[in-house]
Design a protein around this nucleic acid. Structure first.
Lengths: 105, 105
DNA sequence: TGCATAGGCAACCTAAGAGTTGCATATTGA
DNA sequence: TCAATATGCAACTCTTAGGTTGCCTATGCA
């Protein structure tokens, strides 16, 4: 779970996930297009995404095809974010109360 | 949005959010209890959370009370995660296909 | 007033992250 | 076989993030 949060922390990596969400099976070269960094930098970002199991790659000949794995994002939503949805309104009321300078133990 | 992802990337900060989700209005001292780091380290983490607007603080006397703001987490879910929910099954099929060694441009 | 408590600020250290350069490997195709 | 293409690996730089120590400020209270 920590690896997923860490992987999502970088905007370049989120953009890579976007690209693979738009079209799966892209090669490293394709994923490098339009990014102002070297191929090696992109390779490292993809390695982080693979380590977090957000992306899987498959070699075909001399190319490497990349695919998005939507499962870990789902799990983050289910196991973490939804916890904050429960009791969200109470927290929000609490929060607003505080902003108004009230003290409400 | 980037600030929120960055803030969520650290397990200590997620634990702080958990603590404030369990009970709002905790002081800095309370939030330090049980964590194996100095008060100043916790202060820095809370500053990151405040910068991301995930936490708001209010001074009462010599104490500082902290409150969780559930809104940014909601926004991440709505604007980002849900995008991956749409077309999730298609992506998953694509992904599994790749894992099985199929090539499917 | 005097002291304990709660927290703030700034300098510093260290390690990890993001990116680069340079070179090596492995396909593809003529 | 030879050159071009696609990617991999390793060492290096630079910045930032996480944490510490030391000291200062402000409030509470006897």
């Amino acid at each position: 779970m920590d690896a997923v949060f860490k992987a999502l922390a970088d905007p370049v990596r989120r953009a890579l996930l976007d690209a693979l969400h738009t079209r799966g099976g892209q090669t490293l070269g394709e994923l490098c297009e339009g990014r102002e960094m070297t191929r090696q930098a992109v390779t490292k970002h993809l390695a982080v995404l693979e380590a977090a199991n957000l992306v899987a790659a498959e070699k075909r000949g001399r190319e490497k095809l990349h695919y998005l794995n939507p499962v870990p994002i789902r799990e983050v939503a289910d196991r973490w974010i939804h916890k904050y949805e429960r009791g969200r309104l109470a927290a929000l009321a609490n929060f607003k109360h505080a902003l108004e300078g009230e003290t409400d133990g």
